[in-house]
Amino acid sequence: MKKNYSLLLVLLTTAVFGQIPANYYNTATGTGYALKTQLHNIIDGHTDRGYAGLYVTYTTSDKDFYYENNGTLLDIYSEIPSGEDSYEYTYGSDQQDDGSLGTAEGQRFNREHIVPQSYFASALPMYADAHFIVPTDKYVNGQRGNFPFGKVNMATLTTTNGSKKGANLNSGYSAGYTATVFEPIDEFKGDVARMILYFVTRYQGQLSGFYSSTNVSSTQSKAMFDGTEDHALSNTFLNILLTWHANDPVSQRELDRNNAIYRRQSNRNPYIDHPEYAAQIWGEVAGLNTFAANTVTVYPNPAVNHEVNIYSESPLENIEVINLNGQLIQSIQKPQATSNAYIVKNLSQGFYMLRATSGNQTVTKKIIVN
């Protein structure tokens, strides 16, 4: 569906941060695994609304008010951000999963555990935690199965929106794994990453038990994890997730979803509220470009008054704005920062890639100017 951006949406982009409860993260003062434990203590013990209650939660957390803006189900495996979807689902209709069909796309939707439920033997409260369970097409959910998320090399399955299944690309940031993975489209890669980071933080203290459980019928769902409580994720998949977290920044949809789930469960995803926490906890792992995955944030996005701010913990040497045709629109050499923040002004309406360079490291962010 085509994206619809309005002045109201732009205003919400900046205002929604105020919906984080006062003092919610006051005790999150550490770094490394100490910070992860502090975050666990903050989000632990959420209200369990039950597995059936997920469908109630979805009516406020997972409707499309961001693309076609028609209130239909927002499915990360069928949503086409730049055009019309091949099919849509409406809550409360017979399209909801009733135990039938699901032999092709567009027949039914159900509940997708981003961390497969076999990993924790379908136990509560994990089984019904909306922060990492999303409504998706039943057929695609079944095709994804227990496979971990990764970077597909040669696809054996491609969904109508371009999500893929196939052997992992054992190269670059996804090096270290060769078996089958599932890859969402770029629009939702960061969403998936932050859901998994939430999981390993919320359920710290139980992860080793999940990992060693004889109830896990497949090693596929274990591939992303290392069996520890603190590090939690294998280096290969941590690199993948942190790269996705960096390259696909928090969206308005995620902010709204986080708030909606908080109203139902009384806990939040800290990596949506504070994306910088990811790097403060895991830092540089197995050669990860921490400059890209950790230190650069662009806001507000969509831009306000034709300008955006860039926050970077590392000094930037160059900022480039590139349009969708690959043309260089602006190049700012040795930009000046105030409290690690840079301003890019005089942006015309459109979609751009913003490229920031520090030393020999570069990160690219997508930005929208209304």
Results as ranks from 00 to 15, higher is better:
Phe65Glu: 15
Lys36Asp: 05
Met353Asn: 10
Ser213Glu: 06
Thr13Ala: 15
Asn23Ser: 14
Leu241Lys: 03
Thr357Pro: 06
Leu157His: 14
Asn69Phe: 12
Lys63Glu: 10
Trp282Tyr: 14
Leu54Ile: 12
Met1Tyr: 07
Asn325Gly: 08
Ala232Gly: 05
Glu183His: 05
Pro300Ile: 13
Gly71Leu: 05
Ser331Trp: 00
Pro249Gln: 08
Ala279Asn: 14
Gln361Glu: 13
Gly326Ala: 01
Tyr203Pro: 00
Asp94Met: 11
Thr136His: 03
Asp98Val: 01
Asn346Gln: 12
Val192Ile: 15
His40Met: 08
Tyr77Trp: 08
Gly166Leu: 10
Gln117Asn: 11
Lys189Met: 02
Ile42Pro: 09
Arg253Trp: 11
Ser100Arg: 01
Thr364Phe: 00
Gly287Asn: 01
Lys36Leu: 14
Tyr25Leu: 05
Gln349Ile: 04
Asn340Trp: 01
Tyr198Ala: 04
Thr219His: 05
Asn26Arg: 09
Ala155Cys: 07
Ala34Trp: 02
Ser208Thr: 10
Gly18Tyr: 04
Gly142Ala: 03
Ser163Pro: 02
Lys222Thr: 09
Glu183Arg: 06
Thr180Gly: 01
Ala232Arg: 01
Pro302Trp: 00
Val16Lys: 13
Gln333Leu: 09
Val363His: 00
Gly99Ala: 06
Thr103Phe: 01
Tyr262Trp: 04
Leu255Val: 12
Thr57Trp: 07
Gly172Ile: 01
Gly92Pro: 04
Gln265Glu: 14
Leu241Arg: 03
Tyr203Met: 02
Asn146Phe: 01
Ser266Arg: 14
Thr214His: 07
Gly190Ile: 05
Ser234Arg: 08
Thr219Ser: 11
Lys3Asn: 11
Ala52Lys: 14
Asn70Tyr: 04
Gly227Trp: 08
Gly99Leu: 05
Arg257Gly: 12
Asn360Tyr: 04
